[in-house]
Amino acid sequence: MKQIPNRLKVGVPKTLFASYNLSYWQRFLTLSGMEVVFSGESTKETADRGGRLLPHEFCIPIKIFMGHILDLLDKGVDQILLPRMTDRNKTNFFCPKLIGLPEIVKFSLNLEEKRFFSPEVICNGLNPKVVRFPVTAAASLQQMKRVEKQALKYWEETLDNCRKQQITLPEAALKTSLETSRETALKISPETAGRGKLKQPEHHLCVGLLGYAYSLYDPFINKGIQRKLDKLKIRVYTWEMLEPETIETSLRGLKRPIFWNFGRMLLGAGLHFLKDPAIDGIIYVTTFGCGPDSVAAEILNLEAEKHQKPFLLINLDEHTEDGHLFTRLEAFADMLSTFKEDNAV
């Protein structure tokens, strides 16, 4: 193999936008000739270190994100991937904190802009698209344009896997990366991928699990919720297992459009789950103080009442104790069981 001298080391924080399009970014950067460095798993330290840099009222995912940035800087990366998530579509926006990520990082760490690798990105539903490439010595514009197409194709394959095999995004990302090459294989722990050590437990309940990828697939934020659900013999269905058309069709029934990109998908998936007789109930995982969720989750809660489908809102924050979470999930599972058949013990 040809050795490329001094490849540009680009750090990818494994949270927020990258929890969605991890495989896309990895492909894009690698094929552009850059060396990709991932941040480690979220820990207490990640949250503490990140939190210290931010105003108190920031939500826990952003605090954790800052911790990931610090981790990448510790790893000695040349640049950090910080896409500028813009909205060229008038009915589709991101949360202001996602839009402002480059600024949040720049001003809280006093970093020079040359440390950022910031392509301008739009995201229509699930597919990211770079609309402006940064100028870099590592790759030419033509090259980046070409590999971006390949990365997108690869990402679509990953999503396709989610739908076809009814698996979660990290599970699919792991699978797709293993099928291609070892060099670009993603290191995803089974914990992150969602399934624990329990091998195919006999699920007797089906639940629609909703939440942003950065909470749903970060066991530090969600206190291992998928594993807990596994223990309760609950099979989980998530938004990425649905066809985009299914989500769009469900959203059409709303009186007013909802315009947050990721929140929209959750709501659309939730509305579909409400109508799906195979789904026994819905669990919506949110983090304390989330603005878009205060609307999306509330709409879904009201709709759930109309459909008489059990709905549980799990509001996560910085607490480390997870007993309360299990109490709620078990009570919810008991409730669904009694609904289904009178076998709740």
């Binding site: 299990f326 109490t327 709620r328 078990e330 009570a331 008991d334 409730m335 709740a344 013990v345």
Partner: peptide, 8 residues
């Protein structure tokens, strides 16, 4: 024989 959450 049984360990149950307080809600149930």
């Amino acid at each position: 024989d049984l360990v149950k959450n307080e809600i149930t």
